[in-house]
Amino acid sequence: MSTPAHTPTVRLHLFGVTPARIPSAIARMGTTRWSLRGLNHLVFSKLLGTAAPTTFTTTSADPLHWGMLTVWSDAAAAEAFDASRAVRSWELIAHEALRMTMLPIASQGHWSGRQPFGEPDGSAGRDHSGPVAAITRARLKASKAAEFGRASEQVAQALREVNGLLLSTGIGEAPLLLQGTFSIWESAQAMREFAYSNPAHTEVIARTPDIGWYAEELFA
């Protein structure tokens, strides 16, 4: 799977399961990888656990909700994916599901050494009005993880009180070190105000170059 050369179609599926279905969900985190292999036009995929967007610790993990992120070079293939074995297997055990289709308007950084959303510079979103989604993902340095967890507490508190936030959840490929967030905002302006004007968030941004929390990071 290569970095997309054109604007890709991004799909995020979130599945909610009952406590009795948690073992089945854990099993699907392994088996779904095989179902995704070799799919035409699939350029990037990640199976994700979720967490309450409050702390970056194992105690905030949410075993009742799971995610599947896929990136496609063809919009029709992304739409057809809903009928695939991978999606159907999750729907069989889920009591609720949410599917989001997105087009990247800006992306910086890398995820597993890749640029899964291409290199949009934001110009495509200048005329966009309405809700926007944001994905952050970081591979934390082990030596900095505890310090980052403490620093993120105030950011999490600010998220609970911010205006314009419609949905927020923690996401990650593993309970430790590989972590991120997915959020939906009423507008790009609301998202920017939090990212660049909220004191708790801007403090973490300002400290990042000096402390070096991340071995790898992405914001889209």
Rank of each mutant, 00 (worst) to 15 (best):
P4F: 05
H6V: 09
T7P: 01
T9Q: 12
R11Y: 02
T18L: 13
R21Y: 01
S24V: 01
R28C: 01
R28N: 08
T31D: 10
T32H: 09
T32E: 14
R37P: 00
L42M: 12
F44H: 15
A52N: 03
P53L: 08
F56W: 07
F56S: 06
A61Y: 00
W66T: 01
S73L: 08
A75E: 14
A78T: 07
A80Y: 02
F81E: 05
F81T: 02
D82H: 12
A83Y: 02
E91R: 15
I93D: 04
I93M: 09
I93P: 01
I93R: 03
A94Y: 07
R99H: 15
T101Y: 06
L103C: 01
P104Q: 05
I105V: 15
Q108N: 13
H110D: 07
W111E: 11
Q115H: 11
Q115R: 14
P116K: 10
P120N: 12
D121R: 11
H128L: 12
S129P: 00
G130L: 13
I135V: 15
S143K: 07
G149F: 02
A151C: 02
Q154Y: 05
V155C: 01
A156M: 03
G164V: 06
L166Q: 14
L167K: 05
G170P: 01
G172I: 03
L178F: 08
G180Y: 08
T181P: 01
T181F: 05
S183M: 14
I184N: 02
W185C: 05
E186H: 11
S187I: 11
S187R: 08
Q189W: 10
R192I: 03
S197E: 14
P199T: 10
H201W: 09
H201Y: 05
R207K: 14
P209D: 05
P209G: 04
D210C: 01
D210S: 13
Y214P: 00
Y214N: 13
A215P: 00
A215K: 13
E217A: 14
L218N: 05
F219I: 15
